[in-house]
């Protein structure tokens, strides 16, 4: 579903991503770990078509991002660290707008239903988002992924700054989406969430994917230990 084929990106002389080969299958959650500047966000940006690769290719459900970024994005949902919403609109109005932009016009009661499914109650959904917490914004982001029927989900530090309860709830929703066949690529520093949620974990260092582990591998060993070992190698 999500494929990176020898994906490479340089910023002037610095190699931000070095021949990344990666494949995230439908229904799979892949956690991409790595220190700051390792190339996690660059990977997300290349899948979104916000950056052009120097070589290699990113594909979303078979569509080359470089060849047709708009078509590739239509198959994606993207949840950044802080979901950005329009503060003078309510949660449901934001969802309605983004959903229309994603090519899905839905009735108001359907939108409320999606927000409730993402964990946002009607009363909160009717409030302007200027008052929303980060967790509530993430819920609108999840509801958007549901509304657009995305085949793949790109997450960039989604649980950073969330309290444990909100993080847990977010994790629950993520698994639910994966259970519906969505391929999830999650760039994160949150080792706990990576171990709890991901089917596979990859470690990026200096733009190179230096290791990949299955859920079973990281359950048997301490992920923090593996991570520290890999980034200091």
């Amino acid at each position: 579903m999500l494929e990176a084929l020898k994906l490479t990106k340089r910023f002037q002389d610095r190699v931000a991503l070095d021949a990344l080969d990666l494949r995230v299958e439908p229904g799979e959650i892949f956690a991409l770990l790595g220190p700051n500047g390792a190339g996690k966000t660059t990977t997300i940006n290349l899948f979104l078509g916000f950056l052009t690769p120097d070589s290699g290719e990113a594909r979303v459900a078979g569509t080359s991002v470089a060849a047709d970024p708009v078509a590739a994005r239509r198959k994606l949902a993207y949840i950044p660290e802080m979901v950005s919403l329009y503060p003078r609109f309510s949660g449901v109005e934001n969802l309605d707008y983004f959903s229309r932009l994603g090519g899905h016009q839905r009735r108001r009661d359907e939108l409320y239903g999606l927000l409730e499914k993402a964990g946002l109650q009607r009363e909160a959904a009717e409030r302007r988002v200027g008052t929303y917490s980060k967790g509530m914004r993430q819920k609108v982001g999840i509801a958007l992924a549901l509304a657009t029927g995305a085949k793949a989900l790109l997450l960039d530090e989604p649980t950073s700054g969330l309290d444990p309860a909100a993080s847990h709830e977010f994790s629950r929703m993520l698994k639910r989406l994966a259970g519906e066949g969505v391929a999830v690529l999650m760039a994160t520093h949150d080792l706990f969430r990576a171990r709890e949620d991901a089917a596979r974990v990859g470690i990026l260092v200096g733009g190179r994917l230096v290791a990949q582990y299955s859920a079973k591998d990281v359950k048997d060993r301490d992920l923090e230990e593996i991570y520290l070992e890999r980034i200091s190698a």
Binding site: L48, V70, R74, L85, Y86, L101, G102, G103
Partner: peptide, 14 residues
Amino acid sequence: ESGTLRQVLSLGVS
């Protein structure tokens, strides 16, 4: 600046 442009572009809006 607020990040909504990324959000909008990520939806495949030209």
